[in-house]
């Protein structure tokens, strides 16, 4: 009999975080709002986070220590350079609220303020790192090209570029650049969408896409995207 009140207490303690997480599930529009907010934030605010606080002894969590000096990333660590600002900021918020899961990123995002996240988005979104990715997963590039450009409509699979833009350089704030991204990162994300461990896409679009892909397809499309140039700043917008 005594267990019932205990169970009740446990349930009451657990309920608020669970409900809070549901309430925090961000609408895709958040990316637009974040981008708008980031336009008013000084990207210099991000510098201590990126290079590490000069006062601090532990600089292991500086962004650049994993994402590289130019935001180019490596292996399963994504290239951030040139991604849409709203997308980057939304991912940081999603890590902070636990909507997107990754031990390292949830650890670093937990203390970030809205303003710091906005500054990080503005900083990395404006970077223009040279191409750094190369195909490395042994994927079938021709198959990858087909999936990226045409999709596979036998299984209701639109092409990557339908949403991520005709060059894979991203569209708006909700559809990030995928061209020139590190293949191991793309592959890991596709696998996570398929397994359900990543689920923060608008309308569940990426879950639907990844569900149709075999591992061979994932490696093929990851390697193909890595063979493309990443988004470049146009001379006019410099």
């Amino acid at each position: 009999m005594i267990y019932r009140p205990i169970a009740l207490v446990i349930a009451l303690v657990l309920a608020p975080p669970v409900l809070a997480q549901d309430a925090a599930l961000p609408e895709w529009r958040a990316a637009d709002d974040y981008a708008a907010a980031a336009a008013n934030v000084d990207p210099a605010l991000a510098m201590p986070l990126i290079n590490g606080d000069p006062e601090a002894t532990d600089k292991a969590w500086a962004c650049a220590s994993c994402h590289g000096d130019a935001g180019q990333g490596a292996e399963t660590i994504p290239r951030l350079s040139g991604l849409s600002v709203g997308y980057i900021v939304k991912q940081l918020h999603d890590y902070k609220t636990g909507v997107r899961q990754n031990n390292n990123m949830q650890y670093v995002a937990r203390t970030l303020t809205d303003e710091q996240m906005a500054a990080l988005g503005a900083y990395y979104g404006a970077l223009d790192a040279p191409p750094a990715a190369t195909p490395s997963l042994g994927g079938d590039l021709e198959r990858g090209r087909m999936l990226a450009l045409e999709g596979d409509w036998n299984v209701d699979l639109p092409s990557c570029f339908t949403c991520h833009g005709p060059s894979g350089w991203g569209v708006g704030q909700a559809f990030p650049a995928i061209a020139g991204q590190n293949p191991s990162y793309i592959h890991a994300q596709l696998a996570a969408w398929k397994a359900g461990s990543r689920a923060n896409a608008p309308l569940g679009l990426m879950q639907s896409v990844a569900a149709a892909l075999s591992d061979d397809d994932m490696r093929a499309v990851s390697d193909y995207l890595a063979s493309l140039p990443p988004p470049q700043r146009l001379p006019a917008s410099r």
Binding site: T162, P166, S167, V171, P231
Partner: peptide, 20 residues
Amino acid sequence: SVCHGSDGQGRQDQNGRYAF
């Protein structure tokens, strides 16, 4: 609206080409 925009005007990439 995630693809076509709340204003229904579609979305372009940074080269000005329409994706939606």
